[in-house]
Design a protein around this nucleic acid. Structure first.
Length: 263
DNA sequence: TATATTTGACCCTG
DNA sequence: CAGGGTCAAATATA
């Protein structure tokens, strides 16, 4: 692991790319496995949960690498594990503590139902209403708060936060950390996006898409476009890029897991 | 005019 | 008390 100690920023970016590639492979694997697994089997549920955990770990790893500060130390901690009594392990500990605290700050919709890193803001299949935006301390970019568009009508508690990562981009691409909280209780958990591969439906009843799909002029990704118009074309493309398919697959999987799991 | 977004203030939690 | 989440009035847009 000594080699990691000499990692520079470009090396970190390379690691991030590798982890993202790993994520993509995992999603692919998951897509192959889900149709095979019996939907009413405990072990199948466990397997799906494990796959989800692996993806979640990848997200966390990327987030840790992307967060500002000394990414080299964080990388070393991430890959090399804790080292007794040295500064690196302390940093790692603080990082975990910070992450935990940031989650606990949330008052409502405390159930963290997923997180992901997207390379561009986009329509994730749900319609969201932006209800707040804040500049977070020590972050270079503001955090946007969204709730399900059906929250008013149906009391759907689902919310999400979107924040551009501090050190993401290097001028070519930007990464957005998207955290999801609460389950969609709105009728028709609409996976509106046609790009979503039907993985979720292999193990669950077809989702009623009528409610969340109604076309309104304010999709979530449009709000992002205001913040960064350069993504406009990305959001409107006919053929969804692979990384977005990756993301949508992940979302579809999350619905599957949450539906399978007793609530 | 209706609806969505913005933004400053307020509130809650650690 | 600080940081972060939510509210709600003001503003923008179709």
């Amino acid at each position: 692991m000594k080699i990691l100690e000499s990692f520079g920023h470009s090396d970190c970016q390379a690691v991030i790319n590798m982890i993202e590639h790993q994520k993509a492979l995992m999603v692919e694997l998951r897509g192959m496995v889900i149709p095979i697994l019996p939907s009413d089997n405990e072990q199948a549920k466990l397997a799906l949960q494990l796959l989800g955990d692996i993806l979640s770990c990848s997200d966390k790893a990327i987030s840790m690498l992307e967060l500002g500060g000394d990414t080299t130390n964080k990388l070393t901690n991430l890959v090399g594990g804790k080292r007794k009594g040295d500064k690196h392990s302390m940093d790692n500990h603080n990082l975990e503590k910070e992450a935990k605290e940031s989650v606990n700050k949330r008052r409502k919709n405390a159930e963290h139902t997923g997180s992901t890193v997207a390379q561009a803001p986009h329509n994730d299949g749900h319609q969201w209403r932006k209800y707040g935006q804040k500049w977070i301390s020590r972050a270079k970019h503001s955090r946007s708060y969204y709730r399900c568009a059906n929250s008013k009508v149906q009391g759907c508690p689902a919310t999400k936060t979107v924040q551009q990562m501090d050190s993401s981009g290097n001028g070519k691409s930007k990464l957005f950390n998207v955290d999801y909280y609460g389950q969609h209780t709105c009728r028709g958990d609409g996976i509106a996006n046609p790009y979503v591969v039907d993985t979720a439906h292999h193990s669950m009843e077809p989702i009623n898409q009528t409610e969340c799909n109604s076309p309104t002029p304010t999709l979530e990704h449009e709000a992002h476009e205001v913040q960064d118009e350069r993504f406009e074309n990305l959001c409107m493309v006919q053929n969804m890029p692979e990384y977005l398919i990756d993301f949508e697959l992940e979302r579809a999987f999350e619905f599957t897991v949450h539906t399978l799991s007793p609530v």
